Measured scan of single mutants.
Amino acid sequence: GIPATNLSRVAGLEKQLAIELKVKQGAENMIQTYSNGSTKDRKLLLTAQQMLQDSKTKIDIIRMQLRRALQ
């Protein structure tokens, strides 16, 4: 079985993952909103794209940590 310490770690990672998935969803929504907007929305679009990139990276890292914890 999986050690108890790993189980609480997994629960924490799953919570983090859920949050990051919401951030990713929000960033994707912002990108959709701003991509057909005016030029003043360009900065917001770039910010949203950066957020999305960061979020995807975090999600990958969390998933990797989850896999390790579940081994």
Rank of each mutant, 00 (worst) to 15 (best):
R67T: 10
G26D: 15
M51H: 03
K40A: 13
Q71F: 05
G12M: 15
M64N: 10
Q16N: 03
K56A: 06
A18R: 08
L7Y: 02
R42L: 13
T33A: 15
R68G: 07
N36D: 09
L7D: 10
S35T: 13
M64K: 13
I2Q: 10
A27L: 14
I62F: 02
L13H: 01
T33Q: 15
K24M: 12
D60K: 15
I19Y: 09
K24S: 06
M30D: 10
K15E: 08
G26T: 15
K22S: 06
K15G: 03
K24L: 11
S35L: 13
I19T: 08
K58A: 04
K58P: 01
L45F: 06
L46C: 10
A27G: 01
P3F: 04
L45C: 05
A11T: 08
G1C: 15
I2E: 07
T47H: 13
M30W: 05
N29W: 13
K43V: 11
V10G: 05
Q53V: 09
R9C: 15
N36G: 06
V23E: 04
N36H: 09
L17M: 03
N29L: 15
A18C: 14
Q50G: 03
R9E: 13
S8H: 09
T33M: 14
A18I: 07
T5R: 07
N29T: 10
E20T: 04
L45E: 02
R9I: 14
S8G: 10
K15D: 07
G1I: 10
L21N: 03
E28V: 07
K24V: 05
L13W: 03
K58C: 06
L45T: 02
I2W: 13
Q49H: 07
A48K: 00
N6S: 07
K43C: 13
N6C: 15
Q16G: 02
L7S: 07
D41N: 06
D54H: 06
A4W: 03
R67G: 06
S35E: 12
K58I: 05
G26W: 13
A18Q: 13
R9D: 11
G12V: 14
S35F: 14
K24R: 07
D60C: 15
G12F: 15
L52S: 01
Q71P: 05
K22Q: 07
E20S: 04
D41Y: 05
R67Q: 12
K22F: 05
V10H: 03
P3Q: 06
T39C: 14
N36C: 15
T57C: 13
T57R: 15
I59E: 01
S8D: 12
A11F: 04
E28M: 11
R42F: 13
K24E: 02
Q32N: 12
T47A: 14
M30R: 03
Q32E: 14
E20L: 13
G1R: 08
L66D: 01
A69W: 04
Q16S: 05
T57Q: 12
L52C: 04
R68D: 14
D41G: 02
G37A: 08
E28K: 04
Q71M: 11
